[in-house]
Amino acid sequence: MEKSAYKGVFVFVEQRKGIIQNVSLELMGKARDLADALNDKVYAILVGNKITDKAQMLIAHGADVVVCADAPELDDYLTEPYTQAIYHIVNEYKPSILMLGATTIGRDLGPRLSARLGTGLTADCTKLEISEEKELLMTRPAFGGNLMATIVCKEHRPQMSTVRAGVMRKLPADNSPKGEVIKIEIPFKKDKFRVKLLKSVKEKGAMVDISEAKILISCGRGMANDEGLKIIDDLAKTLKAQVSASRAVVDAGLVPHDRQVGQTGKTVRPDLYFAVGISGAIQHLAGMEESDFIVAINRDKTAPIFQVADLGIVGDAKQILKQLNERLNG
């Protein structure tokens, strides 16, 4: 493989019903960093049905070029049409790097595509950087978050990775840069479309995306009762924060699963993270340690959470939060 023929940092832009997903904008932010380090360009791959008008938004978030495949075959996500589209684009443009969100779409499309391309794919990366040899260093957790591994894809291109929502930072929208939008026709092989979508159902219930929250107050085992949750809810209202929780609290049924932080829940990086009554199992730390500022309150001064906290308080979380709320309202 002639590696030098492969150029550009490409992001597969995920849209659902025409709505660009945040994870893709976060990836664009990272792609900008990587492209700058390589003195290269950021390409957004935008595929869907009647979605060309979204290209400008991608340019505002860091893309130099938007490669757009707009076709009725790409209306809803299905593995095969999307794989054919991205495979065609990769063969036309020969990306050096291709990133996808580690969502139920990216984790279905990514491996299928990597096998068709015969290249490597590194899942759920938490850190991406460029080495001195201009290669992509992809760092990810393994063994349930107990170990970190940095992966390279030396001899194959594109270097593919998926990244979970909330791990990278999106750039603030800037409408001044001029980007290029290229429309591309996909020569579909429709006889390979063998899976039919009967229906797509959104489930009821207030969906809260804690990975979008600026402030999170996270409830651990030490606060996992009605009184503790009430105190947390009250403070959350005052601070306009969202409530999240550790796995133990979610498993106990006290907080819904979509609010779980950690390896098996969500990765969050709010401006402020309160860890209340959370001891800090490694699986939990994996999901929150990138937060800007971490305040931990726990009775046990040996709790591992204090190792990642910017401010640690040893004490009774109920009392402290109650008083804090009173003073904020007072």
């Binding site: 957790p141 940095t150 910017d310 401010l311």
Partner: peptide, 23 residues
């Protein structure tokens, strides 16, 4: 195509200040 370049245990971020004070 992929190789492990290096593996390491999760680096511990340096802890901030810890206070053991009344509420």
């Amino acid at each position: 195509p992929t190789r492990v370049h290096k593996a390491f245990s999760r680096g511990v971020k340096s802890a901030g200040q810890l206070y053991e004070v009344d509420s």
